[in-house]
């Protein structure tokens, strides 16, 4: 029953992603700037005829509805067109770049949860203690620090001064990693390349920390406040009255119920992990989707922008589906 409903929800994402695609299609064409002009402006002296030729090639001379029809017709078959600038299929470009972005997003998620959970729990259990005040001040700082600044400070401290971690990139030059899935940490495990594993992991730390800091801050604050609530509840007193130790009371009875609001917030933060990575990828020279889409926007590379935004929308919807499924496990009162 649950599987059927999950499948239903997955199918519902298709119209959502198509709707997003149509919106993006229309809006980028509303923005000023013609892709062919921009290309030719960089290319130097070109004749009017050559530009017409290019417009024809990209179907930019057709009326908007026709362009949309052509785009959707190909899109439902999984063909997102050719990049104007890079002259390669958009699906190919995305599948090359996507693993880097997902690796970074997962790395940030893991790091932010590793930071947020102990802090949120300890701050709630020791409410108003020095630990609580310090970590909540830290969380405030984490939310308010812009990621380009935090990234540069982290590079200065850990890479330049202490020389503990690499400055940028995904992996060291000496790693000799053979590309299997595009996820470097996974690839190095699969090929048993220990040097590449440590190298890719070390490269992942600083960008993940930069991207995950605001997420960790938000999650820690939400977890703290919901733990404060569950720790005051009657069922916690019941657990104590049964003779349960503080560990069981806090980590089983209180945390389990505090997870319900926390998981919702984590799901929403996935959007930040996707959207915020453009800056972080730029700062750390991370070859991901974010950097690609930023330059695609400057180039008015319509097919590439459309394709990338569709992937973002799909990932966001899937993340929320996962949250909804987890919800039904965490809160037995809710059905999918």
């Amino acid at each position: 029953m649950r599987a059927v409903k999950i499948l239903e929800r997955v199918l519902v994402t298709i119209p959502i992603v198509l709707g997003v695609a149509i919106l993006v299609f229309l809006f980028i064409r509303l923005t000023p700037g013609d892709p062919v002009d921009i290309m030719m402006g960089q290319g130097g002296a070109v004749s009017e005829g050559e530009m017409e030729q290019l417009r024809k090639e990209f179907h930019l001379d057709e009326p908007l509805p026709v362009q949309l029809w052509l785009f959707l017709k190909d899109a439902v078959r999984g063909d997102l067109g050719y990049s104007y600038v890079l002259k390669r299929p958009v699906t190919q470009l995305i599948s090359e770049r996507l693993p880097a972005t997902i690796e970074l997003a997962l790395g940030s998620l893991v790091i932010s949860l590793l930071i947020a959970f102990p802090i949120g729990i300890i701050s709630a259990v020791r409410q108003n203690s020095a630990v609580d005040r310090l970590s909540m001040a830290g969380a405030f700082l984490g939310i308010s620090m812009p990621s380009f600044w935090l990234g540069i400070i982290l590079i200065l401290l850990f890479s330049v001064q202490l020389k503990w971690l690499p400055v940028q990139g995904r992996i060291g030059f000496d790693a000799q990693l053979q590309n299997i899935t595009g996820y470097f940490v996974l690839d190095s495990l699969l090929s048993g390349n220990r040097i590449a594993f440590w190298s890719s992991l070390r490269h992942l730390i600083l960008p993940s920390l930069t991207l995950g800091a605001p997420v960790a801050a938000v999650v820690a604050r939400v977890l703290r406040s919901s733990m404060l609530e569950t720790l005051r509840s009657d069922y916690v007193t019941l657990a104590r009255s049964k003779g349960a130790s503080e560990w069981i009371v806090v980590l089983k009875h209180a945390l389990r119920n505090a997870l319900i609001p926390t998981v919702t917030v984590v799901g929403l933060q996935v959007g930040i992990l996707l959207g915020g990575n453009m800056i972080v990828e730029e700062v750390f020279g991370w070859p991901g989707l974010g950097r690609m889409v930023v330059s695609a926007i400057f180039d008015r590379d319509f097919p590439l922008i459309q394709g990338t935004v569709m992937i973002y929308a799909f990932t966001f919807v899937m993340a929320n589906l996962i949250v909804d499924v987890m919800y039904t496990y965490l809160n037995p009162k809710i059905e999918l």
Partner: peptide
């Protein structure tokens, strides 16, 4: 803790909020 629940145990006023909803 050895006394609680084993020698002396307690029942509460509002069963609806006293049972843990997640278990």
């Amino acid at each position: 803790r050895q006394v609680r629940g084993k020698e002396i145990s307690m029942i509460f006023q509002d069963p609806q909020t006293t049972l843990n909803p997640a278990f």
